[in-house]
């Protein structure tokens, strides 16, 4: 640190308490936030899982839901998408495991 106070004028205290301004968080527009790809993938996989009754899709949707949940920044904004994806994923799983075996899957 000695190098930063090379000459005499900078040897005195650089601090100026009177100039201190408290931190004001910059407002971030929702569209500036990084895109939640995992949530998007989760929704798509969830819908595919329900529509075509692929249980692997529903499971992957749940995993991507977890990722999206872990990376969540803006609570209200992302929760909508996540809850939708989660609903689709769970619905897909429930229909898959508890639903009747339809003949359509055979043919």
């Amino acid at each position: 640190m000695s190098h930063s106070h090379g000459n005499a004028s900078s040897a005195n205290d650089p601090r100026q308490p009177s100039m201190a301004k408290p931190y004001t968080p910059r407002p971030v527009a929702p569209e500036d936030l990084p895109v939640d790809y995992s949530g998007f993938i989760a929704v798509i996989l969830g819908v595919t899982g329900v529509m075509f009754r692929y249980k692997i899709c529903s499971w992957l949707a749940i995993i991507f839901c977890a990722q999206s949940l872990a990376n969540m920044r803006n609570l209200e904004n992302d929760l909508k998408q996540i809850s939708m994806a989660m609903m689709f994923a769970i619905m897909g799983l429930v229909t898959n495991y508890l639903g009747p075996n339809r003949p359509a899957t055979k043919k």
């Binding site: 609903m87 619905m91 639903g99």
Partner: peptide, 27 residues
């Protein structure tokens, strides 16, 4: 929220299940 989501999903499933079951009869 997660509980409510789950319950919604459950209800949706029940409706779907009944419908599918009924339709399979006729098929």
């Amino acid at each position: 929220p997660s509980v409510s989501i789950f319950s919604i999903a459950l209800i949706a499933f029940l409706c779907l299940h009944h419908r599918v079951h009924g339709s399979s009869h006729f098929e």
